[in-house]
Design a protein around this nucleic acid. Sequence first.
DNA 1: GTACAATCTCTAGCGACTAGAGGAGCAAGA
DNA 2: TCTTGCTCCTCTAGTCGCTAGAGATTGTAC
Lengths: 141, 141
Amino acid sequence: MTDLMAIGDVSRKTGVKVPTIRYYEGIGLLPAPPRSEGNRRLYGGKAVDRLRFIRHARELGFEVEAIRELLDFAEQPQRSCAKVDALAREHLQAITSRIERLTALKVEVESMIKSCAKGRIAKCRIIDTLSRHEHCLHAEH
Amino acid sequence: MTDLMAIGDVSRKTGVKVPTIRYYEGIGLLPAPPRSEGNRRLYGGKAVDRLRFIRHARELGFEVEAIRELLDFAEQPQRSCAKVDALAREHLQAITSRIERLTALKVEVESMIKSCAKGRIAKCRIIDTLSRHEHCLHAEH
DNA sequence: GTACAATCTCTAGCGACTAGAGGAGCAAGA
DNA sequence: TCTTGCTCCTCTAGTCGCTAGAGATTGTAC
């Protein structure tokens, strides 16, 4: 009745690589599917949906543990989604602070490059900056 | 004559953890220091300088391999520093593209959160967005 | 029938550490 | 002098999220 697929088909449909699908099964993110007589995994549409969800969330930078939680919540439709919202906000916070730190870093590396006169290494300002912490623009490290 | 230090002192001076110092020695980033009679590592000032350099570069996001190259160059003061400049520029490029991708991500996660009405999970827009790829703001994933 | 692709399981590797076991060394106080 | 407790030693294994490879089996197309 149902149109079951081999792992390769699922991979092509979802963009998740074959070993990664097996890996997700191993860590319990994707339930173990039934097998064919020849011991091959046979997937239905639900597995495809779940993998798409996982892939998308991973692309958005959610960690596997967070995705596990999201999937758990997704399976209880009657519950409030406050927790889901909180998870997403937590994630947004992490992204924002990563951007902030990277931007500070960029400024520092840029100023390092600007001061480079392309002379001999003995006078290299880049090596200099990396050597002496007092020269930092930013104090937190 | 020289004031040699134990690994713990070096750790405190540089902010690099003791096991990390040993790890750097293991991967050849920091030369193996002489030992005391009781087989303990004894470090001089140069090791402290080198570790500060490494730490700072790591904090600026340089990979260990890049740091290895930088250190090699730093030890040949008469050579041109064009390569050092190139390494730094390469790194800047990587930082810039990381920021770009994170910013795109942030926009997407933000819009996901904004659409959340905090109702039941059955209608959760966050779960929805993660499930259905067509809803993405950005096409590249 | 035969070639070749796809799948299976299992293990090991990546980067940059971190954690822990189990043992030895060392300085200070009783 | 002895003991307590800290630091240090080596070694192995774990982290995260996969990826790569070996070697065996199964399925498919000609």
